[in-house]
Deep mutational scan, measured.
Amino acid sequence: QGEKVEGLQAQALYPWRAKKDNHLNFNKNDVITVLEQQDMWWFGEVQGQKGWFPKSYVKLISG
């Protein structure tokens, strides 16, 4: 089970394309609201879409 977080935002360092239905698509420089953190994967929201993404593709910009 991941840790729920509030008020964290991350900026995409690279584009990410979903490999599964529960993954989040985003483009480089998109700002993602992080909702949950697990070891290597984070759950977040961007442009009304929610899903999992690899944390190595983003950098935290707040929180």
Rank of each mutant, 00 (worst) to 15 (best):
T33N: 07
A18F: 06
L60P: 09
S56R: 10
I61W: 06
I32S: 00
K20P: 04
L60S: 08
K50A: 08
Q49M: 12
L24R: 02
V46W: 11
Q9L: 09
L35E: 06
W16K: 03
H23S: 05
R17K: 04
K20W: 09
D39A: 13
E36V: 12
K28S: 06
R17W: 06
N29P: 01
L24A: 03
P15K: 09
V58D: 01
Y57P: 00
E36Y: 05
N22M: 04
N29E: 13
K20T: 11
E6D: 07
G2V: 11
N27L: 04
V5R: 15
D21H: 14
A10W: 08
G63K: 04
D30C: 08
G2S: 13
V5G: 09
Q49W: 05
I61M: 04
N27E: 15
G7S: 14
Q49S: 07
D30T: 09
N29R: 08
K50T: 10
Q9P: 08
W52L: 01
N22D: 13
K4F: 07
Y57N: 15
L24P: 04
W42Q: 01
H23Y: 08
A10K: 09
E6A: 09
P15V: 08
V34I: 15
N27K: 08
K55R: 14
G48Q: 04
G2N: 08
V5Q: 13
V58P: 04
E36H: 07
G63T: 14
V58C: 08
V31L: 13
W41H: 04
W52T: 00
Q38P: 05
W52F: 07
N29T: 05
W42F: 12
I61Q: 11
L24K: 00
K59I: 07
S62P: 07
I61N: 11
L24H: 01
N27Q: 09
H23W: 12
Q11E: 05
L24G: 01
Q9F: 08
Q1F: 05
S56N: 05
D21K: 10
N27G: 08
E36A: 13
F43P: 01
Y57V: 11
L35Q: 12
N25H: 14
L8I: 09
V34H: 05
K20I: 11
G51M: 00
K19W: 10
R17F: 09
L8R: 11
I61D: 08
A10L: 06
V31A: 06
Q47R: 09
Y14G: 09
K28D: 09
A18N: 11
Q1R: 05
G63V: 09
Q9A: 11
L8E: 13
F26C: 01
L13F: 15
G48T: 03
I32P: 04
E36M: 08
E36C: 13
W52K: 04
I61P: 11
L35G: 13
N29Q: 12
L24W: 01
T33V: 10
L8F: 13
L8V: 15
G48Y: 11
Q38E: 14
P15H: 12
G63S: 06
T33G: 07
F26W: 00
Q37M: 15
K28M: 07
P54M: 06
K19E: 13
V31S: 07
G63C: 14
L35C: 15
W42A: 06
W16Q: 04
L8S: 10
E36L: 11
G44C: 01
Y57C: 09
A12K: 01
A12T: 01
K4Q: 04
L35A: 02
L24F: 03
Q37Y: 03
W16T: 02
A10V: 15
D39N: 07
E36D: 01
E6F: 08
M40V: 08
W52R: 00
V34K: 01
Q38S: 09
Q47W: 09
W16H: 12
Q47D: 03
Q37A: 13
V46L: 15
M40Y: 04
Q9K: 13
G44A: 00
N27W: 02
V31H: 10
T33A: 11
L24V: 08
Q11C: 03
Q9E: 14
L8Y: 15
S56I: 03
E45Y: 14
K4M: 15
W41Q: 05
S62Y: 02
P15C: 12
S62R: 10
A12C: 03
I32G: 02
V46E: 02
Q49C: 14
V58F: 01
Q11I: 02
V46I: 10
F53L: 02
D39K: 06
S62H: 04
K20H: 09
W16A: 03
K19F: 14
S62T: 07
Q49N: 04
H23T: 07
G63I: 09
A18K: 12
W42K: 00
F43E: 03
P54D: 01
K4N: 13
S56T: 13
D30Y: 03
K19P: 09
V5Y: 12
M40Q: 14
A12W: 00
K4G: 02
D39R: 08
G2T: 12
F26L: 11
H23C: 03
V31P: 05
K4S: 13
K19Y: 11
M40G: 10
K20G: 12
I32T: 00
G48L: 06
N25P: 03
F53E: 01
M40T: 10
A12S: 02
G48R: 07
N22F: 10
H23G: 08
K19L: 12
G48P: 02
G51R: 00
A10C: 08
D39L: 04
V5E: 09
Y14A: 11
T33R: 13
F43C: 02
K50Q: 05
F43V: 00
E6V: 10
D21L: 13
R17M: 11
M40F: 07
E3D: 13
W42E: 01
W16R: 10
K28H: 06
Y57A: 15
K19G: 11
W42V: 04
D30I: 02
A10H: 03
L60C: 14
N27M: 13
W42I: 02
S56K: 06
K28G: 07
P54S: 00
D30K: 01
E6G: 12
K4T: 14
D30V: 04
T33F: 06
G48F: 03
N29D: 11
L8C: 06
K4P: 05
E45T: 15
